[in-house]
Simulated assay, not measured.
Amino acid sequence: MNQETLRQVPGSAYLFRVRLSATRRGARLARLLTERQLDTWGVLFGDATQVVAELASNAVLHGRVPGRDFRLRLKLDPGPGSSLRIEVTDARADRIPRTPDPGATDAESGRGLLLIAAYADRWGVDEAPAGCKTVWAELTVPGRGAP
């Protein structure tokens, strides 16, 4: 696990980045590290950890390539109307997440993206270098203290 926490100049964004193994343990660690980092920044982390848990789980389940890790990045923009951007980058750009058909209530998978859509203000997918993809979500941050 390679972890990097960066604190920018006061008034600008706070960043946290970590590379984790594409395993169930790595996905669980992503959630735990998110809780710890957001607590350090004084951010209420309930919704954010649910989003991280789902994105990390998807990276492990659907984006895994043997021998390659996934990356978690958190970016907190302070100030009024603070926002948190969560990014999870995995090694499978060819597997783009899609929300399930609303009529398919008996589907065995796909509900996680509905959870992300419910918790996040916005979410999407971007191409990343080296045949990777980044799935991201942005949340408004309530009750933030000073980091």
Rank of each mutant, 00 (worst) to 15 (best):
M1V: 15
N2W: 13
N2M: 05
Q3K: 06
Q3M: 12
E4H: 07
T5V: 10
T5Q: 11
L6H: 03
R7W: 10
P10Y: 03
S12K: 09
S12L: 10
S12T: 13
Y14M: 09
Y14P: 09
L15H: 07
R17M: 10
V18Q: 04
V18N: 01
L20H: 09
T23L: 02
R24P: 09
A27I: 00
R28W: 03
L29A: 11
L32S: 05
L32M: 08
L32A: 14
L33C: 13
L33Q: 10
T34D: 12
R36P: 12
R36K: 07
L38K: 13
L38A: 06
L38N: 03
W41V: 07
G42F: 11
V43Q: 02
V43L: 11
V43A: 08
V43N: 08
G46Y: 03
Q50C: 05
Q50R: 15
A53N: 15
E54S: 01
E54C: 05
L55M: 06
L55V: 15
A56F: 07
S57N: 10
V60A: 13
L61W: 10
H62K: 11
G63N: 05
G63P: 02
R64W: 15
P66G: 15
G67P: 10
G67K: 08
D69G: 10
D69A: 11
D69E: 06
F70S: 00
F70N: 00
F70H: 03
L72T: 04
L72D: 15
R73A: 13
L74M: 14
L74I: 07
K75H: 04
L76G: 14
D77F: 11
G79K: 11
G81K: 08
G81P: 13
S82N: 15
E87K: 04
E87M: 15
V88P: 04
V88E: 02
R92I: 01
R95I: 07
R95M: 14
R95T: 14
P97G: 02
T99M: 07
T99C: 00
P100I: 01
P100Q: 04
P102H: 03
G103E: 05
A104R: 05
T105V: 13
D106S: 13
D106T: 13
E108P: 08
S109Q: 07
G110A: 00
G112N: 01
G112H: 01
L113S: 01
L113E: 00
L114A: 03
L114V: 02
L115V: 04
I116L: 00
A117R: 05
Y119E: 13
R122Q: 15
R122F: 08
G124K: 08
G124C: 02
G124E: 06
D126H: 09
E127Y: 15
T134P: 04
T134I: 11
V135W: 02
V135N: 12
W136I: 02
W136D: 02
W136A: 01
A137P: 02
A137K: 01
A137M: 06
A137F: 00
A137L: 02
V141F: 08
P142K: 06
G143E: 09
G143M: 12
R144S: 06
G145D: 12
G145C: 13
A146M: 07
